[in-house]
Each structure stands twice: as C-alpha cells, then as structure tokens.
Design a protein around this nucleic acid. Structure first.
Length: 878
RNA sequence: GCCCCCGUGGCGGAACCGGUAGACGCGCCUGACUCAAAAUCAGGUUGCCGCAAGGCAGUGCCCGUUCGACUCGGGCCGGGGGCACCA
C-alpha cells in the first residue's frame, strides 16, 4: 500500500507542462473527425479571475475533454473582452494607461486560467482591444452601413454633466450618475445605431428553432422583442380650436375592439402636436417641462401618478362624426412606442382607468365576461382586461373580442379620409435599434470622418484600422479622443478638405457579438472571418455563461450573425445551437458587531452542537453568520481562486464546482465543501495505487468468463460509465460526480475485501478490477485532469489519459437476469420480490401472494386487484 | 402590476416517462487503529413509537385525478429572478 499523499502543487504544473509540450489541445481546422465547438463566455480582464470564472470554465472544460474522448475535433478557445470602462476608470484613479492596465490584467488572468488545467487552444487567443481584432469590426461596421443596417439619428441619452459622458440606464442610480453623483440630464444626441429592428420578426420566430436553449432565456428574449399586432387609427381633429398643420392624430392600438368604449385621446409630451401646443400655450409648455423632469429617475416614473393636460382640442370618433373626444397630453404616453398617441378606453385598461377617474371621464364597459349581464356589469377600481363578449358597441354587440377586432379593422381599412384609409393593420415591436455610440476612449473607434460638405464619410478600406492614439490624458472629464490635439483632424476622403474624425467609440457589446466567429480562424488578416473555417465550426455546439447575458449579449450576437450573413461575412443563421446558463457562486457572510463584514479568510468556524459559530482569527470576537449571497467586494464574502488553487490545487476546486449543486443553480462555496472535495482527491489517489497493486497489469485482455464477485465489479464499472456519459452530455455534472463516488466506493470495498481475504485477488477479479480502475480514472479525467494523469500513470499506463478514447460500453452488463421488484400493498412499499427478468405476470403474482407481509395484510381474503408493471413494481390492492 | 423558476432530512441535493422518497456528498454519532491527536477505515444517521421484529407519519399547505403522486390538474402560502406606464 502506498501511503504518501497526492501533491497537487507539484503534480499539476508538471502535467500542464506535458500537455503544453505535446500541444495536445491545439486544434486543426482540417481534421476529418466530426467537429464540436464548446465555448464559455470570454472574460473581461478586470484583474484577477473570480470563482464564477472557475465554475464557468470548469464546466466547459469537462464538455471539451469529454467530446474529445468521444472522437470529436473539439474547438475550445479563449480570449478577452478587453475594451470597456473599468480600464478608463483605472486610468483616472491610478494614472495607468488603459492599454497597459488591460494587458497586465490579461497576463495575470491568463496564467491563472492556465493553472486551472483547462484544455484550451491558446493559439487562437484574441483580445478585442487589439487593432488586429477591431480593424475587422470597423470593416464590418462600414459593410453594415452600406447594406443599410447602420443609421445615424438623434436619440435621448442619459448625460452626466460632470463626467461629460453618456451613461447607460443601469449606470443611473436615483437620477444621478453612478460615479460623479451629478444629476443626470436627458439630452438629445446624434448617435450611431445598428438597425436590429430590421430583424425583429426573424429574431423572434427563430427562437423556436433554438430547442437547446433554456426556455427561460427564450421567454426573456421574446418579451424583450415584444411583438404586438394592432391597428393604426386616424382620429380627425374637430375644426374648432384647430391648430394649423394638425388636422388629425394617429394612434396605435391592440384593442380596437374597444373603440366604442373610448373616452379620450392621449398624446406623449414630446409628440409633435404637444410641442406645437406648447409653443402657443405657456401652461401646456409648463406641463410638458414637468413631464420631462420626472423623466430621468426610473423610480419616479414607476410611482408617478397619471397626469394629463387638456389641450382643448377635440378628436372625432372614426365611427361617429358627432362623437367628440377630448385630447390630453399625458405623462404616461411614450413617444418612441407606436405613434406616441393612444385612445383611452378606461373600462379595459388600468392606466386609462386611473386617468379617467382623476379627470372625471366616462367609463363605459364594452367587453363583458361571458354570461354576464351587459346592463348591470360595471367597472369599479379595476379595469376588466379579460376576454368576453362585446356590449354597448352598436354593430359589434355580442361578438367575441377576436371577431370585433377583425370587424373594426375591416371597416376602417376600407373607409378613407383624404385619400388614405382611416386605419391600417400594423405589427409593432418593443425592440429598439441598438445605439452603439459611446463618448469614451477605450473602445473600437467608429471609422467615420465628418466633412462639412460631404457629411459622414466612411474611412476608406486602405486606411483601416482607425487606431486609438496612445498619447491621451485622463486628467479632465470627458472623452480624451475629442480633445486630443491632432487625432481627429484629418482630410475628408472625398474632397481632401479639413474634416474631423468621429470621436465616439463602439459599445463593447459589439466586440463580443462576433468573437466566436473570429475564433474559427483568428489568423486571417484579410477579412473578419474565413468562410471555410466558419462554415466548418459554426454554430457553437455548446455555449456556457451567466444568465445575466440572457438578453443583450445573446440578442446582439444573434443580430450580428444575420448582419454578417447579409454582408457576406458568414453564412449562418444562429450562432449558438446549445446554450447553458450556469448559476452563481455564493458564500455566507460574516457580520461584525460594528456592522462591517469580515472576509472568509479572516474567520474560523467552530461547531457548537448542531450549530456553527464564527470567530475572528484576530482577537477572537464572535461574528454573526449572515445570509448566503453572491460573492461581492462590498459584503467581503469573496474567495480568491488563487488561494484555493495554491492550497488545494485546481482539481479540488474543479471537483467542488461540479459536485452537489445542479449547474444551473447557485453553488454555495464553503470551506467544509472544499475539504470534502480534497478528501476525495486523496482517496482516489490511494485507491488508484491500491488497485495498481491488486489488479491485473495494464493491457490484460478480457477473460472469457468471470465469477460472481468479478462480474459485480464489471457491472458497477459499466453502469457508472453509462450514467456518467449521459450526465456529462446533459450537463448534469452533480449527478456524474455522485456516480463516480459510488464506483469509487464499490471498488474501495472490493479492494478491502480482497485484502482481508488474503491480500491477493483471484485472477478473474484482478482482471475485472483492472478494467474497472481504467474506467474509473477515464471518467474522472474531464473533471480532474491532473489527478487522472497521475493515477493513470500509477496504474501502469504509458499514455496520456487526456488522449485516450472514452471506454466502450458493454450494454449486456447493464441487464440483470433476475430482478428485484418492490411490492406495494395499497400503494405503500411493504416487501420485495425477486423474480426472473422476463417472468410473466401470473408467476409474479403467485410469488407476491406467497410473501409473508402480503399474507398478513390480506388476512386470508382475496386481493381486489394486483397490478404488475413489468420490470418496475407490483401493487396489491387489498 | 405582468411573466418565469423554485419549495424534499441538520445542510447541498438524488428520484428516468406517474411506480421502492432521501442516491451521492457535507455535517453529526458510534467503533477500530493510536500514548494521544490528525489522517484513514468500518458502521449508523427523516421523524415518532418499540429492546427488537416491526408499525405509523412524511417531499411548503389544501383539494382533486389514479391501483399508486415529489412527479399530473385546481386553489393558496413562502422564496428567488426577469420586465415594467409598450397602448
């Protein structure tokens, strides 16, 4: 028996070196085997890897190593999402250049990832901040532009007046910039947009083809795209009080069935008509200004009371020239959805109802529940939004909602006013175009030159890439590109006259929208992608990452592949055939008496009966064990992967990440759990060495027959092989881990038994143990690759297990000759019965009736019924 | 407010398609080894009653479908996530 412990700190770098020297994870683009592309979302180089990365990349690595063993040509690359604000913040706060900061971080994190033993093809590494990457992005921007997929238009943005930059919505907290604390203004800026809305419908319908995506993510995207089918209806304005240039208001509605319940028209504060009224009526202008001010803070919008301003204008009901409706400017109408105008039907829309109650407008129910009396049905504080039948609606009465919608649409479509139909059907989406302009330095420059004469002119191909200047200063707020002394001054490519460069850079989501395509051939310089390589590798077979990217990153990437197809850069529809969203790594918190938090490294845990108590290492003060939360700096409940890797080793960390919690759920990181994982590492090492001693030599051929003990060992091994394979394929790593434990337990027991029986296994058992040991270690390798290599060598093999194929499953070993069925009496399990596997029902019944517990329960009576489910269960109904 | 997900031992979680609830791990208890401890090994561990054999209850709560429900249907309660004036 070998008693020394496995030394991960020594063994892990040793095996990593062997893999690297032999280049076994290098992937070729011209390999005849079937391809498999597994990808984890690439990291932002923030400085150091965190536990979330460890979990994410471990899962991907298990899949990669498994698929490789199953005979696939596996692409498993890694890169860096390297542009972004933190680099600029570091520049401002610590006076380091964003480029230096980013590349330093990349170097650190790369070595951390390498110490995890991931089977990555590092030769394909890309960093999005590298001109060799972003030059292609600039090229695609220009191609998209040519193809009509880029647009320059004004839009409202959150402007931080102190930092002089645009802020994303999530960077605005309580109406203030997250960093400067300054009150954010809504400004209209001219910005560049990708016309993702061109693909609204396709991005929606294609979701149905993504059957290997989580349902949850598809639903989120569906809601985000937000398709609604409705009707555009023109309401003529009455002549009195009319405003010149405005003789109608066009509204969008999905409830045209409720047209006879209309009691007002409401328009957005920034609707052209509202602006026109504001110009001649100071009171209206004041109301509009008030709406604009509440517009900044999200929370205020949410809680804001419905408010309106009666313009005095009157709109004419499309079905009744004598019916006039008041026109309000209302704070709850959005200009950028539909037409920025609605007709209000208070009985069937909660917002309209709140509004009508406030201003004393009529509330007439026009849809009543099936079976209800339309004469007495009334609406109180709650609008009736369910289905039903039409009422109080003239020619629509008694129709279903569906039929009434159809009837209204048909009638209004065929009616005209001023040569145009009164209404037309319209499909409206919630999805907006993707604004990509950022007033920042550390991003991909937008390759455009603005000329007084020629407007926005594309940078010619030969001048790409437009490179970021290195000599920039961050001592003042605002965009360093904009105030760089020379960078933006260039001649117009068309006329040669002095012009200026676009100083906005692209949203970093652009960078991550096509990196998975670049990985298929990152060496090609002449184009963003190599058609042949892209065709071979795409789509990504298994994409793994956090659910926080469920919408933006994944939707943008889906758009990008379509836009790249339209511009001839890739011939694929969907980038990710399989998607898996893994849970977070969480940890308990330790709160000190003064309300601050202690980090896990600063405390020790003591068991006190069945309670756990925590004490500070320094001083011994007891701290409260608090809620289990996402690891965060503010709660100080983070664990540094480096500490884990250097004390327990990568395999222990990997094993723990895969154990216990289902991968889609959060995993609780705990010291006890890591120790448990580490114990198994040591146990497996001992077991492999014991087996090496007890089992037949490596390469021993299968025997013709095995005794019962040997057969049992073989059955366990092949059973585990079948289940672990399935579990990895379905990404149910926690179950796979449990199966491996079970096999290790079985083999451990077999070794012990053989040892007590005289120290030597019979030759058939020795052969079975050899086979089982090889299988066990093969199953372990995707999860704990270093330990597996070490054990593989200990078992007498000269090969690398990382290069060994997955064992062949012998299915006949999974089938039993006799089978033990549970016996229920009235649905409760009371006994077992062992019968031949193919025993007929009468035989089983007879065996069951002879059982003692059954006889006792029946007390001599005849059972009412006996249900025999073959291979499963027997139920006796007494 | 709307949409989605989840509630199983002390804890993380298993249970395939409606068929033995609690696999596996953590923790805890007992024993072996040891002068002792750690490590390791063996056994136990849902609750209640019982010396035991065994019995009763049990998957958030209530009701239903079924020979049989953690699993299916209806209604509640609790926790988490997403969206949020989208007409």
């Amino acid at each position: 028996m070998k008693s020394e412990r496995y030394n991960a700190r020594e063994a892990e770098p040793r095996w990593q070196r062997v893999w690297e020297e032999r280049e076994i994870f290098r992937t070729a683009n011209d390999d005849p085997r079937p391809k498999y592309y597994v990808l984890e979302m690439f990291p932002y180089p923030s400085g150091r890897i965190h536990m979330g990365h460890v979990r994410n990349y471990t899962m991907g690595d298990v899949v990669a190593r498994y698929m490789r063993a199953r005979g696939h040509n596996v692409l498993h690359p890694m890169g860096w999402d390297a542009f972004g604000m933190p680099a600029e913040n570091a520049a401002i706060e610590r006076k380091v250049h964003p480029k230096a900061w980013t590349y330093d971080n990349i170097a650190t994190m790369k070595s951390q990832l390498k110490s995890m033993g991931l089977s990555l093809d590092w030769s394909r590494e890309v960093a999005t901040c590298d001109p060799s990457y972003y030059r292609h992005q600039q090229k695609m921007f220009l191609d998209f532009w040519k193809a009509g997929l880029v647009e320059r238009k004004t839009s409202k943005v959150n402007w931080d007046p102190v930092d002089q930059t645009v802020l994303a919505n999530e960077q605005v907290i309580d109406g203030r910039g997250w960093r400067s604390g300054a009150e954010v203004e809504i400004r209209e800026l001219t910005q560049w947009f990708f016309k993702i809305t061109k693909y609204s419908d396709e991005l929606l319908t294609a979701l149905d083809t993504l059957d290997r995506w989580p349902e949850k993510v598809r639903i989120m995207q569906k809601n985000w795209i937000g398709k609604s089918e409705g009707l555009l209806v023109r309401f003529m304005l009455a002549a009195k009080n009319a405003l010149s240039g405005f003789d109608e208001v066009e509204v969008f509605t999905t409830r045209h069935d409720t047209l006879f319940g209309a009691s007002f028209i409401a328009i957005a504060p920034d609707h052209p008509l509202a602006r026109a009224i504001g110009e001649r009526d100071p009171k209206a202008a004041a109301f509009i200004e008030e709406c604009r001010r509440t517009g900044t803070a999200q929370e205020l919008i949410d809680k804001a009371e419905k408010k309106g301003f009666d313009t005095g204008l009157r709109a004419i009901h499309p079905f009744d020239p004598g019916w006039e409706l008041p026109v309000y400017i209302a704070n709850f109408i959005l200009m950028d959805y539909g037409t920025g105008a609605i007709f209000g039907c208070p009985a069937h829309d909660q917002r309209d109802l709140d509004f009508a109650r406030k201003y004393g407008l009529p509330v007439v129910p026009v849809v009543v529940p099936e079976g209800a009396d339309s004469k007495t049905f009334a609406v109180g504080d709650e609008a009736y939004v369910e289905d039903g039948r039409l009422a109080n609606s003239r020619f629509l009465d008694d129709m279903t909602v569906e039929a009434a919608k159809e009837e209204v649409a048909k009638r209004l479509e065929s009616e005209t006013r001023g040569n145009r139909p009164v209404a037309q059907r319209r499909i409206q989406f919630r999805l907006r175009d993707w604004g990509i302009s950022r007033q920042r330095y550390w991003g991909c420059p937008i390759p455009v030159i603005h000329c007084e004469e020629h407007g926005a002119v594309p940078v010619p191909d030969k001048d790409l890439p437009v490179q970021l200047p290195d000599d920039v200063a961050f001592d003042r707020p605002g965009n360093p590109l904009d105030r760089h002394p020379t960078w933006k001054h260039v001649p117009c490519p068309k006329c040669g006259k002095p012009a200026r460069r676009e100083t906005d850079t692209m949203d970093t989501f652009v960078d991550s929208s096509w990196y998975f395509l670049r990985f298929t051939n990152p060496w090609i310089e002449s184009a963003p992608t190599d058609a042949k390589a892209a065709q071979y590798w795409m789509p990504v077979d298994q994409y793994i990452g956090g659910v926080e990217h469920a919408i933006l990153h994944l939707l943008y990437s889906r758009f990008f592949t379509r836009a790249m197809k339209a511009t001839g850069h890739a011939n694929i529809e969907e980038p990710f055939a399989g998607l898996f969203t893994q849970g977070m790594v969480v940890h308990e918190t330790y709160e000190k008496k003064d309300g601050t938090y202690a980090s896990p490294a600063e405390i020790r845990i003591e068991a006190d009966g069945d309670r756990r108590r925590a004490f500070l290492l320094k001083g011994g003060e007891e701290v409260a064990i608090g809620a289990i939360e996402k690891m965060s700096k503010s709660k100080r409940n983070t664990v540094d992967p480096d500490d884990i890797l250097s004390s327990y080793g990568a395999d222990t960390a990997r094993w723990f990440m895969l154990s216990d919690s289902p991968p889609e759920r959060d995993v609780i990181w705990s010291e006890e759990g890591v120790q448990g994982a580490h114990r198994f590492v040591q146990r497996l090492y001992r077991l492999a060495n014991d087996l090496a001693e007890m089992a037949a030599p490596a390469g021993t051929p299968h025997l013709a027959s095995y005794g019962p003990a040997a057969l049992a060992v073989r059955k366990s091994a092949h059973g585990a092989l079948a289940r672990v394979s399935e579990d990895i394929e379905r990404l149910r790593f926690n179950r796979g881990v449990a199966q491996i434990y079970e096999l290790a337990n079985t083999l451990g027991a077999a070794v012990n038994e053989a040892r007590t029986a005289g120290g030597k296994a019979a030759s058939d058992l020795a052969a079975a143990l050899r086979e089982a040991a090889d299988i066990l270690i093969r199953l372990v390798e995707p999860m704990m690759p270093h330990l597996a290599e070490e054990c593989w060598a200990a078992l007498g093999h000269k090969t690398l297990i990382a290069e060994e194929p997955w064992p062949a499953l012998e299915r006949e070993l999974l089938v039993e000759d006799t089978i033990t069925l549970p016996v229920q009496i009235n649905g409760k399990k009371r006994a077992d019965v062992t019968v031949a596997r193919d025993a007929a029902a009468p035989e089983v019944e007879a065996a069951v009736l002879a059982l003692e517990p059954v006889r006792r329960a029946l007390e001599g009576r005849v059972p009412k019924r006996i249900i025999v489910v073959p291979q499963r269960i027997v139920n006796v109904v007494a």
